[in-house]
Design a protein around this nucleic acid. Sequence first.
DNA 1: CCCTTTCTGTAAAGGTCGCTACAGAAAGGA
DNA 2: TCCTTTCTGTAGCGACCTTTACAGAAAGGG
Lengths: 210, 210
Amino acid sequence: MATKQRGRPRSFDRDEALEKALHAFWQHGYEATSVADLTRVLGIGAPSLYAAFGDKKALFDAAVEAYATSDNGTFIDRALAEEPTAVAAFTRILREAAVGYTAPDRPRGCMVLSVGVSATTPEVVAKMRELRALNLAVMTARVQADVTAGVLPPGTDPEKLATYAGAVLQGMSAQARDGADRELLQRVAEVAAAGFAAAAEGREVGASGA
Amino acid sequence: MATKQRGRPRSFDRDEALEKALHAFWQHGYEATSVADLTRVLGIGAPSLYAAFGDKKALFDAAVEAYATSDNGTFIDRALAEEPTAVAAFTRILREAAVGYTAPDRPRGCMVLSVGVSATTPEVVAKMRELRALNLAVMTARVQADVTAGVLPPGTDPEKLATYAGAVLQGMSAQARDGADRELLQRVAEVAAAGFAAAAEGREVGASGA
DNA sequence: CCCTTTCTGTAAAGGTCGCTACAGAAAGGA
DNA sequence: TCCTTTCTGTAGCGACCTTTACAGAAAGGG
């Protein structure tokens, strides 16, 4: 289609600009990243930005889409699909999260988990919440699959386990943003993975109290 | 001291107004709660608000102070001080968090954990981060105390356990805000408490993989 | 009663926000 | 070369933000 475009050529690369916008949103959140910030970071004027992406929300949506389809946004689905058991998958997810949330070349934490909970614009809140709910559903289904297949005992509670894993991931993302280093997060991931395995496999662990 | 004040009396109760402001900040966050919102919720004009509390940030600080000294802000310290062991204390903390984060008469989640990570104004970010770091330090010290007292084995890693607990609490707060009901959060708390106890008491739980 | 003190409502200043009208620049087509 | 098409920079729009100036209202002191 239209290999030769007609008018004045664009002065910037759209994908590069999108990635810069993603990093800005990822670091500072939706509302706190102003269009003025974006034009500065992308090195283009506001009209160019609006012509290329629509408005600020559309640019954010495109950035989220880019995030969701990148390694950062797909490592959970990949682990759930590739590992032979739910326990193995979640162990891998927690370990990879510890590494991914503290990568030196990108903002800390998970965009959907950390930026997502900081947004206040209704449409953005809804979209991010939907993504989190989707992740929880996928994780729940993976546990349920192991129960159905007989890998995990019949009494297993998939919703509980998935929510537990989701909570730990959310906490790790927040801790990473607060400056926790990778090595500490990795130790936390091991505790969480062990706790997940114990709960999944129905091992009774007596907590004090009732 | 001055029992008889001289000028025109204030038309509202300062503490009641402070609590309303706390709830507004707690629900919507610092930046998303505008002064116009506050004057509407408190039922007073902007000049009255500024005369009574200073500026928006000072009002937020006062609200955080009120939160931190309330039951919601002290249940962690109380559990750490009152329970005989660190494991018992953290079990209680996680259970109380599940209940407190889903109380029907106040905003969901923890203000310091959830609103704290959503703020972008530098002074507010710093203050909330400091409160989170303080909580982590207190929790770490409590575990260390049990190690020193011989209640927990010498190889115990207090920083790891405290960060794990902090991450779970942060995740539970976020899940509560996302709409997780109390009963689900309580199940999650049990998994986390069991995982904490297992890790604290040095029980080897074989996770798959390395 | 009048003065001082303090609070109240109106109303606006000064700044930033997202967004866009407009004129000029840079390309291809004829 | 001239036209059309598309992008770029300037400059500004209205809306909202936090904060305050100002005049009037409501209390006590003398």
